[in-house]
């Protein structure tokens, strides 16, 4: 069997600029930080990025100027603040963006994951979201139609099939069989809609461990192209059952992201000057800091 274990750097080398990528984080949880830092270091630009609810990972990529087209349902850094870079890009129209909702993005992925070309939905009606989609380049992805059986009005959403989906998980084996602990938002649909699927895992377990509770496998290995084993790969965002978010670093990030010049300094300090994620973790405070953030086994945070 081909070895699926790859480093973030190796995987990112295989992604051409202009790729449509989908990220599996949500605000301040299970963000693909190790992958996003590598995309920034390798300057993979002109990306199309789709996501249900954006967070730190998307803010980093947009702030780094690598996203040309953003398809999103909403998002922020929760109580730490707004996604400043994403909001600034929308305000200055420095990228093409389409606003959707959590469920409509999920349904677009679901259509992709089921091999359907579209999905009917009963949201977006009478909203400015739909009005703006229909008035812009997003018009090719939304149509209104009536049900041929009942005559009911629907919005039809074109399937969303990312070139590459990334999902951060707690547990995977070497074949890519994955367990996701905690709420999963649109991870399953997003993962299975993609042409290529890459998982980043906190822990690599023997397949025998997966076989003990196979009902917990959310993504089966045969769908997974590569497994990146990167412990603490989501920091400073949280991973349920593994570690809490780093509130101090998130506050520091938000302070930097407010201003483009300060954001550049952040990238210099925490991305460009780090060879890899291990060096970045040292900058976050290394093992002593990681110990402070380690999750309590009962509460999961």
């Amino acid at each position: 069997m081909a070895n699926k274990l790859k480093s973030a750097a190796e995987v990112v080398q295989s992604i051409p600029s202009g790729t449509h990528i989908a990220l599996g984080g949500f605000a301040i949880a299970r963000n693909l930080i190790a992958v996003v830092h590598e995309l920034i270091r390798q300057q993979k630009g002109d990306l199309t990025l789709s996501q249900g609810v954006v967070g730190l990972e998307t803010d980093l990529l947009v702030g780094a100027g690598l996203v040309g087209h953003l398809i999103m349902g909403g998002g922020s850094l929760d109580r730490f603040g707004p996604a400043h870079c994403v909001n600034r890009a929308r305000e200055t129209k420095s990228l093409r963006y389409e606003d959707y909702t959590s469920l409509s993005i999920c349904f677009r992925y679901l259509a992709g994951a089921l091999g359907l070309s579209y999905m009917p939905i009963k949201v977006l009606f009478a909203s400015e979201i739909l009005e703006r989609l229909e008035a812009g380049p997003g018009a090719s992805d939304v149509k209104r139609s009536t049900c041929p059986f009942t005559g009911e009005e629907y919005v039809l959403l074109r399937a969303l099939t990312p070139d590459v989906s990334f999902v951060h998980v707690q547990i995977a084996d070497r074949d890519g069989n994955c367990q996701i602990n905690g709420a999963r938002w649109a991870n399953e649909e997003q993962a299975k809609a993609a042409r290529r699927l890459i998982v980043v895992t906190e822990q690599i377990v023997p397949t025998e461990f997966i076989q003990r509770s196979p009902e917990r496998t959310i993504i089966p290995g045969h769908r997974v192209e590569a497994v990146i084993h990167q412990p603490y790969g989501a920091l400073p965002t949280c991973v349920h059952g593994c570690y809490d978010y780093d509130a101090d670093h998130l506050r520091l990030y938000v302070e930097h992201a407010k201003e483009p010049e300060r954001f550049k300094k952040y990238l210099e300090n925490f991305v460009f000057s780090c060879r890899d994620h291990w060096e970045y973790l040292e900058k976050l405070g290394g093992l002593p800091r990681i110990e402070e953030l380690r999750a309590d086994p009962i509460s999961g945070y």
């Binding site: 409509s104 949201v123 909203s127």
Partner: peptide, 12 residues
């Protein structure tokens, strides 16, 4: 205009 967030699940 100052963007703050979006719908997320609000519209749904």
């Amino acid at each position: 205009v100052r963007y703050v967030n979006g719908s997320a699940g609000g519209n749904d």
